[in-house]
Design a protein around this nucleic acid. Structure first.
Lengths: 224, 224
DNA sequence: GTTGTGTTCTGAACATGTTCAAAAAAAGCC
DNA sequence: GGCTTTTTTTGAACATGTTCAGAACACAAC
């Protein structure tokens, strides 16, 4: 049985060697082009060793995602300190993730292929990825809190999740964006962020209560 | 070399047998669980024969999609005749496609796994799938034309594509919807369709010109 | 009918993700 | 140190998508 955490320091080191080899080869050759035998050889172990630490080739891609999440965790607090402007904050979060993924485009697409299967344990909406998802949503919660925009109380709970969904949408767009430097995704992000921030601001006006509540009801009914 | 169209009637018949066997097994056992050997055996041919007609297992999934598209082509005209109400028309189109896919949920997810890779020939945004995509977009164009809602001229070109994108979004939501009878997707569709139809109506008001044009500019810049 | 040519089909071979029984190494215990 | 137990590692075996050289077949030309 594969264990969650290697027991010994040496095992931990072997595990690291395998991830490093895998990510390096994925980056250089692509996900499909890299074989588990290549990875094992590069890490200096037998093929089976990779399967002792990772249940499948796909779990190695997940290791990549976990690394980006850890990196983001380290970087985001200082980014939040730079400004209280909501638009800048949201832009910074999404821009950071996009930049991380852009460095490993093909690998990220392999991840998307895995994630789009709702039955797959590594799907972004599944329960196995819950902590990663929650952390990502909390980033948006933190961006809202202490920002220069007042958020109506009844939006407090849902808005972070909605913004996270919005980011997922932008990332989906980015996957299919073949413009140089992903310029089109940048354009979309700039244009829609303006719209979103303005909508959030407007939603606070007294007149908007009924509209906001109606929308909220639809969203809740659809996502419960 | 694999040919586009089989030359003889017998070959055409073999091809059909292979598709039928594949779809039947996919439906009964699931895409991943069905092997090419199973398919060939069920169709009464050698394994290699399947590869004579289809370049890969994935192309067999595409055959499924093509069948649903053909079915939709047959059904949509009569549906359009039933009402000129825009909301009903849009609902009918999307509901038809959702119902078709719901009958083969797991198979559709295999299709999604293929389609999310922008480099894959069968991606819904690629040039190989252009005619299927255009046909799908044209369905929305037909729904708009002769509907009870007047469409501003500058929206004529883009709106069908935007509605198609909206449908893609709903389908994406549906993929992850595990509620019984896909009730949540139905709720989302009902709620957002109201919003969309109202937005389209509002966009025709003289006051909305600048807003509409600004949004159009963003969309065009992002999708050129 | 024979020959030639293009089409359809076969089944063995190959590549690669994955499994697993057993060996090797490490850790724990006296 | 020697013994037992647990962890780690090995490499061959297996399953399945895919390829391919050639066999079988169909059909036209003569």
């Amino acid at each position: 049985m594969r264990r969650e955490k290697p027991a010994t320091a040496k095992a931990e080191e072997t595990r690291e060697r395998i991830v490093d080899a895998a990510l390096e080869l994925f980056r250089k050759e692509g996900f499909d082009e890299t074989t588990m035998r290549d990875i094992a050889a590069e890490a200096g172990v037998a093929t089976g060793a990779a399967y002792y630490y990772f249940g499948s080739k796909e779990e190695l891609v997940m290791a990549f995602y976990v690394r980006t999440a850890e990196e983001a965790r380290g970087l985001l607090p200082s980014i939040m300190e730079r400004s209280t402007d909501l638009r800048k904050r949201l832009h910074a979060i999404i821009d950071l993730r996009l930049s991380q993924f852009a460095k490993h485009r093909r690998l990220f697409i392999a991840l998307a292929r895995i994630g789009i299967d709702p039955a797959h344990p590594l799907s972004p909406f599944g329960k196995d990825t819950r902590s990663l998802r929650d952390e990502s949503i909390d980033a948006f919660r933190a961006a809202l809190q202490g920002s220069n925009v007042r958020i109506p109380k009844d939006l407090h709970d849902e808005l972070p999740t909605l913004l996270w969904l919005y980011m997922m949408g932008v990332i989906l767009f980015w996957i299919f964006d073949d413009s140089p430097g992903e310029a089109r995704t940048r354009t979309l992000l700039d244009g829609t962020l303006d719209l979103i921030v303005r909508l959030i601001q407007l939603s606070g006006l007294p007149l908007m209560g009924p509209v906001r509540r109606r929308l909220l009801r639809t969203i809740k009914a659809a996502t419960i």
